[in-house]
Write a protein that binds this DNA or RNA. Structure first.
Lengths: 147, 147
DNA sequence: AAAAAAATTGACGTTAACGTTAAATGTAAA
DNA sequence: TTTACATTTAACGTTAACGTCAATTTTTTT
């Protein structure tokens, strides 16, 4: 299950174009995969999952690729808070970084809350429209049956 | 309370730039307001509300301006289903249009459902991250108090 | 090994959604 | 009315996020 994927497979599984995948690597969003001797990119399933997550976050949150980069680097910093890293780095420094991360996360979460509220308001407006349309449809059907 | 607003007021109230407001009019998204004798655009509060709604829909649904146009024309068609219009137009024709509208609305509503699901998944992932960060913070504080 | 299919880099092209600047005209304030 | 400020149109500029060649190499198939 450690299948090696080529760019076309990744494209199909992620729904992105090959160009887009290379582009994401170019701008530092997607970690560069190892290459074959000839230079062909060799991906794994992890890359696909990563791309899927990125895509969702982009779609849903309306993040630009830059914002996504920022976001991802946060996640990495958080992962670095583990094991060996702990023994190397000064706890006070780590604490500062952690505090920063938490702050950013809180901001993001707040932003998401706002988005959810807004999307719900749009949803309810659409539902109202739909009901009106339904009502109009009923009336028309009545009219039509009165002929 | 039928205040007349000039473009700068509208910009301030809507949060959009003057250029954007003119642009939206240019591409047919914002109905052209009346003009003064000299050619200055004279808006009302309604324009502001309209712009706010558009902005939210754009932000939240990730709609392009084209999609927004489509969406708005739907709304208008639906409003035309009223009163005098009814007497003029063939009911069968109206029925067809209504059916179209309902279909599109259903599609949109479905799309929104999907978006909500996705955004919730991102939210929960962020919450997990936040908890992890919190936990790490607690550990660090313990370490620090053990000195 | 030869042919066909896929991947790579490089470079230029594209589109939406405005930003910016300029020159001319209009409106409001003193 | 003069000064100062706002608005208008027109036109060119910009940026992100890719698309689209084209020429070359690799990889796969036969």
């Amino acid at each position: 299950m450690d299948e090696i994927l080529k760019i076309d497979d990744v494209a199909k599984q992620s729904g992105l174009s090959k160009r887009t995948i290379r582009y994401y690597e170019e701008i530092g969003l997607l970690p560069p995969p190892p290459r074959s001797k000839g230079g062909t990119r060799l991906y794994t399933q992890e890359h696909v999952e990563f791309l899927k997550k990125i895509t969702i976050a982009k779609e849903v949150l309306g993040f630009t690729l830059q914002e996504l980069q920022h976001f991802i680097s946060l996640r990495e910093t958080l992962e670095n808070q583990r094991a060996d890293y702990r023994k190397v780095t000064d706890p006070k420094e780590r604490k500062v970084k952690l505090a920063e991360i938490i702050e950013v996360l809180d901001d993001q979460l707040e932003m998401i809350e706002e988005k959810i509220e807004k999307i719900l308001s749009v949803q309810s407006e659409l539902k109202t429209l739909r009901e009106r349309a339904q009502a109009a449809m009923v009336k028309i059907n009545q009219e039509l049956s009165n002929l």
